[in-house]
């Protein structure tokens, strides 16, 4: 596991591990209007220097709002966010020097070439011509885009545009990079290329905060994961710790033809060896199991009087952690 080693000598970071690059305290955001929407309901979070942090949650959980506030684009209703010790509400322009952002959608400047997108970004952040030029060329090479430098954003595939957006976001050497749903709309191959690009940022010492509703992505990329739902932080820790404490159990959904007797079936299942718990779901019974060996035949047998229609098994993962915490699937 990639977890942060307590041995600081192994990690080439200039500051101690206990210092936080992003600090979020009691963050609330309420959108007033015809329908009052509480997007964030008191989020607390600290992101350490050099780590890759994943915010995992379904659509509408408050992930994008959190990123919006951290990147000075959304104003919080209450609570504070500091980036490198700078309050983002009080000093947004100063905080932006330390922030890189890859938004959910392609916001590349359509009037400029790929090279110019990088070059002018460097100029906005105060680099003189020669430095901006060499930095842009180096980034094009690093992200395997050198041949497309003269192309316009409209001529790029989704995966390539995403790589340009990451290159642009880190061009001014920010301390922390925010990636909002970085793999939304990418084909599987581009998604892996994007993961590799994010992994590469670790070597440069850039802290990464990413949001995702793909649990595989959060699991594969993040040192630590925060699970958010309905504007609240439900759990926080390394993927392994989360699985150990909240859901190191296989979730087996049994869909039944006749659901009237499902309650008594659930009771029967609870006493089977290896079953940690069983509960009613609208279409049948959900079983949480620690040890699946030999259990499936028994479950099928118990169900047979009511007619088993479908069975689905979810191995222990952040998905099962989420189900355990909320009673819902991530994609519901």
């Amino acid at each position: 596991m990639r977890g942060i080693s307590p041995d600081a000598a192994e990690i080439p970071l200039p500051i101690p591990m206990n210092s936080y690059i992003v600090e979020i305290k009691a963050l609330k955001k309420v959108y007033e209007g015809k329908q009052r929407v509480v997007a964030l309901d008191g989020i607390d979070l600290e992101v350490r220097q050099g780590e890759i942090f994943g915010l995992l949650g379904p659509n509408g959980a408050g992930k994008t709002t959190t990123i919006g506030i951290c990147t000075t684009r959304t104003l919080p209703t209450s609570g504070t966010v500091t980036i490198n010790g700078i309050d983002v509400v009080a000093h947004p322009a100063r905080a932006r020097q330390f922030i890189g952002v890859v938004p959910q959608f392609n916001t590349l400047d359509r009037s400029l070439t790929i090279y110019e997108n990088l070059y002018f970004h460097c100029r906005y952040f105060g680099m003189p011509h020669s430095e901006a030029k060499s930095r842009s060329n180096a980034l094009l090479a690093q992200f395997l885009l050198s041949e497309r430098g003269k192309a316009y954003p409209a001529q790029l595939s989704g995966g390539m545009a995403q790589r340009v957006q990451i290159a642009r976001a880190i061009a001014h050497r920010p301390l922390v990079l925010f990636l909002d749903e970085p793999s939304a709309g990418l084909d599987p191959q581009s998604r892996i290329a994007m993961w590799e690009a994010v992994e590469g940022l670790r070597k440069e010492g850039i802290t990464v905060v990413l949001t995702t509703h793909y649990m595989e992505e959060a699991d594969a990329l993040s040192d630590r994961v925060g699970i958010v739902d309905r504007g609240r932080m439900l759990a926080l820790g390394t993927p392994q710790v989360l699985k150990d404490t909240h859901g190191a159990r296989t979730v087996i959904d049994l869909k039944l033809r006749n659901i009237d007797g499902a309650d008594s079936i659930a009771e029967k299942m609870k006493v089977l060896a290896g079953v940690d718990g069983a509960e009613r779901i609208p279409e049948g019974v959900r079983v949480f199991a620690g040890n699946v060996d030999g259990l499936l035949p028994e479950l099928i047998q118990v169900c047979s009087p009511l007619g088993l229609r479908d069975i689905s098994i979810a191995e222990p993962s952040l998905e099962t952690v989420f189900i355990h915490l909320t009673g819902r699937d991530l994609r519901e």
Binding site: R96, T107, R168
Partner: peptide, 15 residues
């Protein structure tokens, strides 16, 4: 829909 202004809004100057 393109939100192209976003990168410039993220400059280290007041919006």
């Amino acid at each position: 829909i393109t939100r192209e202004i976003d990168d410039r809004v993220m400059c280290p100057v007041p919006v």
